[in-house]
Simulated scan of single mutants.
Amino acid sequence: MKLVECPRDAMQGWTTFIPTTQKTAYLNALLRVGFDTLDFGSFVSPKAIPQLADTAEVLEGLDLSQSGTRLLAIVANLRGAETAAQHPQIRYIGFPLSVSETFQQRNTNKSIAQALDDVARMQELCARTGQEQVVYLSMGFGNPYGDAWSPAVLGEFTQKLDALGVGIVALSDTIGASTPATIAPPFRELSAAFPHIEFGAHLHTTPDTWREKVQAAYEAGCRRFDGALGGYGGCPMATDALTGNMPTERLIEYSQQAGEELPLNREALAEAEALNQQIFAAH
């Protein structure tokens, strides 16, 4: 089981700017924990995501010398990918491709067809730089716009990504719409149809539904999970009405119960949790 820690997702919607030094210290603490991957920042327009305008500066302050954790950066277009590709310490370049035409336009101001063109060009870029593209199928468990959704639709998208050589595809719950009934069938069917592709789950949850969501994905074959310490995301997990990121603490709990052995440094995890509380309590 692989854990992808996503401080980028936890911080990006925070309205008060978190100082660069504080971000860097927190990320360095997370690097010592032993996560498989750290979704640490994004190369997008600072007007769109002002909280992450300092990603390049933060990257310079990260200490990777004693960490096996791989870095992932999110981009919204080819220009962002080209910027990320200039930093060889970044292993993965992540791109959100929506299965909802409406959301693709809202999120990147492009059509799905145009976004797929970007994916193809980013894949070529990664082939040249030795990096790897991770495609997030956003609105992967349904959408509020009435756009078509089904496991078959996800299969059609995955077929196109497979033809381009994309090796990691993460089904992403953009709005907290996922339920066990919408989680299990896609993972079960996609894993069978594309056994050479690594599928991930980027789930959002309320405090009382996290277990059923993780269990649905895990039992359907998913072994790559995104989470964020404290369950922070666009909104913190303050009430049951909010759907923040899947709390990493809960993923660790589930992995232990499932008999998965994660190579985590518990002391470093405790330090990272303490910093997490300091940051989000102060901002």
Rank of each mutant, 00 (worst) to 15 (best):
E5R: 11
C6D: 08
P7A: 13
R8F: 11
D9I: 00
G13V: 01
T15P: 00
I18S: 07
Q22I: 12
A25S: 14
L30P: 05
L31M: 13
G34K: 11
F35N: 10
D36L: 03
L38A: 07
L38E: 06
L38N: 04
L38R: 06
D39C: 01
F43I: 07
S45A: 08
K47Q: 13
I49W: 02
P50K: 00
P50L: 05
A53L: 02
A53M: 01
T55R: 05
T55D: 00
V58E: 02
L59R: 04
D63M: 06
D63G: 00
S67P: 10
T69F: 02
I74E: 09
N77F: 04
R79M: 08
P88Y: 07
G94W: 09
L97D: 06
L97E: 07
S98A: 11
S100K: 00
S100V: 00
S100H: 04
Q104K: 01
Q105T: 08
I112C: 03
A113M: 01
L116V: 04
A120E: 12
R121H: 08
T129M: 05
Q133N: 08
V135T: 14
V135F: 11
L137I: 02
S138C: 15
F141P: 05
G142P: 07
P144S: 13
Y145F: 15
D147S: 12
A148F: 11
S150K: 09
A152F: 09
V153P: 01
V153N: 10
V153H: 13
L154W: 07
L154P: 03
T158A: 06
D162M: 03
V169P: 00
S172P: 00
I175Y: 15
A177W: 08
I183V: 15
F187M: 07
R188G: 01
F194T: 14
I197V: 14
E198D: 13
F199N: 04
G200D: 12
G200E: 10
A201T: 13
T205G: 08
P207W: 12
P207Q: 06
T209H: 08
R211F: 12
A220Y: 04
G221N: 07
R223V: 12
F225N: 00
G227Q: 05
G230Y: 03
G234K: 10
C235N: 08
P236R: 02
G244A: 06
T248A: 09
Y254F: 15
G259N: 03
E260P: 01
L264V: 07
E267K: 14
A268L: 14
L269T: 01
L269R: 04
A272G: 10
A274V: 10
N276S: 09
H283N: 15
